[in-house]
Simulated scan of single mutants.
Amino acid sequence: MLFAHDTECGLTATAALVNTVGRDGEGLPDVAALAEFFTAHGWTGRHEQTEAELRSVRELRPRLRRVWYADEDEVVTIVNGLLRESAALPQLIRHDDEPYHLHAVPRDAPLAIRMAVEAAMALADLVRTGELSRLRICDHPDCDNVLVDLSKNRSRRFCDAGCGNRAAVTAYRARKAIARS
């Protein structure tokens, strides 16, 4: 493990949230889709399942996407803003058979605030360890998804949307075409 478990989960969930909007359209089209996202990424605590909650989560995404394009100073500005606006107060918490980890807002805080703070806390760890280069944009030419490279050798190039497979198939077909010529 390169980072604490909660940091890795926070980074992964943040990238997934950012990727719910893109060239393929809206990945959180309704409250049910947000509920699926909530469950898929192991969120706990308050979840109102309302249109207002969905709107606030959607409004968070552009701010988080900006992190993948920002330099270190801008990332710090974004992270500090998210923590300040949320009145974050980090504390060690243990729940749901998880080991101690950091929560910076109560579990009954609105979902968008919890998502913002979890992202900010995880990003703060990347800044503190000098690892912002682990935040990447997918290398596939037809994709603008973001990813977090948590591999030990820093070799991850493609997002989770199947772009690595598409790139491999394209390369294979190109090699076969050259061999036939």
Score class of each variant (00 low, 15 high):
49 Q>F: 01
161 A>I: 02
58 R>D: 00
95 H>M: 11
142 D>R: 12
145 N>L: 10
3 F>Q: 14
137 I>H: 14
62 P>F: 00
29 P>L: 05
50 T>P: 09
72 E>C: 10
105 V>E: 09
74 E>W: 00
16 A>H: 10
11 L>P: 01
51 E>N: 07
7 T>L: 01
125 D>E: 14
176 K>V: 11
90 P>V: 07
108 D>Y: 03
170 T>M: 11
52 A>R: 08
132 L>G: 02
174 A>W: 03
11 L>Y: 10
128 R>A: 15
130 G>T: 03
28 L>M: 02
170 T>Q: 12
45 G>P: 00
1 M>A: 15
51 E>G: 06
136 R>M: 06
5 H>C: 07
2 L>E: 14
28 L>Y: 00
17 L>A: 09
73 D>T: 15
41 H>T: 05
56 S>G: 03
122 A>C: 04
178 I>V: 11
135 L>V: 11
127 V>E: 08
133 S>T: 06
74 E>S: 05
152 K>V: 08
172 Y>P: 03
18 V>M: 13
22 G>H: 02
138 C>G: 05
170 T>F: 02
50 T>S: 15
26 E>M: 02
175 R>Q: 09
36 E>V: 13
163 C>T: 09
9 C>I: 10
64 L>V: 11
13 A>G: 10
9 C>S: 14
152 K>Y: 06
80 N>R: 12
161 A>M: 06
94 R>M: 07
169 V>N: 13
153 N>G: 13
126 L>S: 04
157 R>S: 07
56 S>M: 01
24 D>L: 06
158 F>N: 12
181 S>V: 04
132 L>E: 07
149 D>A: 06
40 A>D: 09
145 N>V: 07
11 L>C: 12
158 F>A: 10
68 W>P: 12
128 R>N: 13
114 R>K: 11
79 V>T: 12
2 L>D: 15
84 R>D: 09
87 A>H: 14
159 C>D: 00
49 Q>E: 12
101 H>G: 14
80 N>L: 05
67 V>Q: 02
87 A>Y: 03
23 R>Y: 03
115 M>R: 09
108 D>K: 06
45 G>F: 02
13 A>S: 14
114 R>N: 10
143 C>N: 07
35 A>W: 00
150 L>F: 07
155 S>I: 00
81 G>M: 02
47 H>K: 04
113 I>T: 15
62 P>S: 06
136 R>F: 01
146 V>S: 11
59 E>L: 03
28 L>G: 00
83 L>W: 05
102 L>N: 15
158 F>Y: 15
112 A>F: 01
109 A>H: 06
137 I>D: 08
95 H>E: 15
172 Y>G: 12
26 E>C: 03
63 R>T: 13
69 Y>Q: 15
141 P>Y: 02
103 H>W: 05
46 R>V: 01
76 V>D: 09
125 D>K: 10
106 P>T: 10
137 I>E: 11
48 E>G: 07
134 R>D: 07
77 T>A: 14
163 C>A: 05
147 L>Q: 09
102 L>H: 09
174 A>N: 10
132 L>R: 11
41 H>I: 01
109 A>N: 04
174 A>Y: 05
140 H>T: 14
66 R>S: 11
77 T>S: 10
58 R>I: 02
17 L>N: 07
